[in-house]
Amino acid sequence: MYGYSTMSPSVTSNGVVCLGSCSSAYTNGNLPNGQFGGPTAFGFWDDLMIYASTSQSVYYGTTGTAPNRNLVFEFYESHFGQPTQYYHFQIVFYENLPGVVDFLYFQASDGGVSATIGVQSSGSGSSITYAANQANAVPVGTSSTNSPTLILSFNTNAGTMTQTSG
């Protein structure tokens, strides 16, 4: 992303993947945001939580074979203080498409009303914002939604974003 790569990204339970300096901030804001120092993917930056004794977690893994591998971070979480508000989304990085990151949404109980969604190069650099505290930014979906209801593709090389409805 933004010409930066790392062998050790950081992931927060608040819907964020950082390639550089990261923050555990749960109160979202506009992009670029100085709490995050390097290239950051804000899949659904909000006060999300992984509740104990559930299957909730942030999973990750690679698919495909070189040079066409994908690194996928999959979030299964709830909102803080709202254990029945569910969120399921993925952040995907592509080995053969440097600079492109996709966000795939399956379920977002509140539709994004208190979330920031986008990417930034640094805390004061280039950024692309899809939504910040925007009601109905993401389709709600359900726990049985197997295909993405929304796909956002950020091309940090060109500074563009495209969206595809599921």
Rank of each mutant, 00 (worst) to 15 (best):
residue 50 I to Y: 01
residue 110 D to K: 03
residue 29 G to C: 03
residue 63 T to L: 04
residue 58 V to T: 04
residue 95 E to T: 14
residue 99 G to R: 04
residue 94 Y to L: 09
residue 129 T to E: 13
residue 14 N to H: 14
residue 139 P to G: 12
residue 74 E to W: 00
residue 42 F to H: 11
residue 21 S to Q: 03
residue 4 Y to A: 14
residue 63 T to M: 07
residue 45 W to F: 06
residue 126 S to D: 14
residue 55 S to Y: 09
residue 114 S to W: 02
residue 44 F to N: 00
residue 137 A to Y: 02
residue 166 G to W: 01
residue 15 G to D: 11
residue 22 C to N: 13
residue 140 V to R: 07
residue 64 G to D: 08
residue 97 L to M: 09
residue 49 M to D: 08
residue 133 N to F: 15
residue 21 S to E: 02
residue 47 D to Q: 10
residue 31 L to D: 07
residue 5 S to I: 03
residue 164 T to V: 09
residue 115 A to P: 13
residue 157 N to T: 15
residue 62 T to I: 11
residue 68 N to R: 15
residue 64 G to K: 06
residue 15 G to C: 10
residue 17 V to Y: 05
residue 110 D to F: 02
residue 10 S to H: 14
residue 131 A to Q: 06
residue 75 F to S: 00
residue 141 G to L: 06
residue 76 Y to I: 00
residue 77 E to A: 08
residue 98 P to S: 14
residue 73 F to W: 13
residue 146 N to E: 07
residue 64 G to L: 06
residue 84 T to F: 13
residue 19 L to P: 09
residue 95 E to N: 12
residue 139 P to F: 08
residue 88 H to I: 11
residue 89 F to S: 02
residue 146 N to M: 00
residue 119 V to T: 04
residue 126 S to N: 15
residue 55 S to Q: 14
residue 109 S to N: 13
residue 153 S to D: 05
residue 65 T to I: 09
residue 144 S to W: 01
residue 61 G to W: 07
residue 31 L to M: 11
residue 56 Q to K: 02
residue 111 G to V: 10
residue 6 T to G: 10
residue 150 L to T: 00
residue 151 I to Q: 02
residue 48 L to R: 02
residue 108 A to I: 12
residue 39 P to S: 15
residue 53 S to Q: 09
residue 18 C to Y: 02
residue 127 S to D: 09
residue 81 G to F: 06
residue 30 N to C: 10
residue 83 P to W: 12
residue 61 G to D: 10
residue 53 S to E: 07
